[in-house]
Design a protein around this nucleic acid. Sequence first.
DNA 1: AATAAAATTTAGACAAATCTAAAATTAAAA
DNA 2: TTTTAATTTTAGATTTGTCTAAATTTTATT
Lengths: 221, 221
Amino acid sequence: MKYSASKENHLKSIFHLQHEQGLVTTNALAAALQTRPASVTDMLKKLKEQKLLHYERYKGFRLNNEGRKAAVQVIRKHRLWEYFLVKKLQFGWDEVHEIAEEMEHISSKELVDRLDAFLGYPATDPHGDPIPDSMGRFSQQKQLGLSGVPLNKPVRVSGIAQQTTEMLELLQYHHIHLGTRLEVKKKFPFDDSLEVKIGNRPPVAISAQVAKNILVKEEEK
Amino acid sequence: MKYSASKENHLKSIFHLQHEQGLVTTNALAAALQTRPASVTDMLKKLKEQKLLHYERYKGFRLNNEGRKAAVQVIRKHRLWEYFLVKKLQFGWDEVHEIAEEMEHISSKELVDRLDAFLGYPATDPHGDPIPDSMGRFSQQKQLGLSGVPLNKPVRVSGIAQQTTEMLELLQYHHIHLGTRLEVKKKFPFDDSLEVKIGNRPPVAISAQVAKNILVKEEEK
DNA sequence: AATAAAATTTAGACAAATCTAAAATTAAAA
DNA sequence: TTTTAATTTTAGATTTGTCTAAATTTTATT
């Protein structure tokens, strides 16, 4: 199945919204796509026609299996191209979104799978969001904030929630990057700050505010 | 300036046709684009409106400077992506055209220039067609058939005219690829076959039929 | 529960790109 | 040089995706 760029955009946004909301509303989708509620309604009819989602008028909507599959393929493409742009073409992590918005609509499945191989099957994009595999499966482990990690459990940085320049600068200073191994050695209940071992360095203090923005996954063996 | 995919396709095809024809005709363009003459006329009006070509009704048309510039940028993108697909993603030379037809419409100029750098500023695409540089300039040397090359002049393979599988297989056997250095050591007027030194190997015989399909350029120092 | 507000959908319009069928123009043949 | 044939253009329709304004339905408030 091949869908228009506009349909792919709708599917993708619905997918993201329904993770937060369950049932998605017309207004929410219109806001996410920077379009008008009336336009969303028009598109919903077409997507329902093509059996990509459940939708009853005035009642909200959510993707069915077909729709979810299509959405995930678009997300896969988007994230792989972002990874390519940053890792191979040296773009900054904050410059790639718009370009990837265009590239995600290139249709060849073969292309995407070869790109995946060329990049070494990356698990997350440059923002730390997981890249689904060729079958549409997301790596099952989920990200959690560093704040919620048990003491002495080895974890790996898999994403940064609030990507401000200041935040990035601070992380840079502490040598914390995507993929960096961390261990929480101590928690201070007074201000919820943490003492964290970063790679093999001596432990340093990390504020609660920063910690909750560092997303990690359990270390795979 | 940014143009729709359809407009870019029209500009690109006109560019190619006017190299062969000078003035381009409505029917010729319709055939090249697999569309209808009436549709071409419609588009011509729009492109003239945007001052991308000279056009008088019933009289034919050709790109002006603006139009040529736009067309060349599309061609540049197409050929760079083809090169990427073959050299980095291991596609066969005969599998990449359709995909590149889609990728050539990605708009970011920055992307194209970085891709160019990433690929090492290749001079020709996998079919041997020249890749214009960032300013839209084509490398000036032109390709000639191996048959027409003077004795003992070092040349480099820059393209293959008739890309049949059989032809490619034969070239593979002789270790002749894009970029291979060749020297014609002897010509046999009887059958117009050549004795050719390939890289540093001992010379081998190449038939006239094959030779005229091997496109080369004078070796740059 | 009645009414006001918010959300959603419909109706009708528009732009882009295409098409078919008919008309206009140019080129070729008798 | 007429007449015929081929090419090109126009006129009007269609599809996709969008919009505004008005109507409908749901939700929230008094």
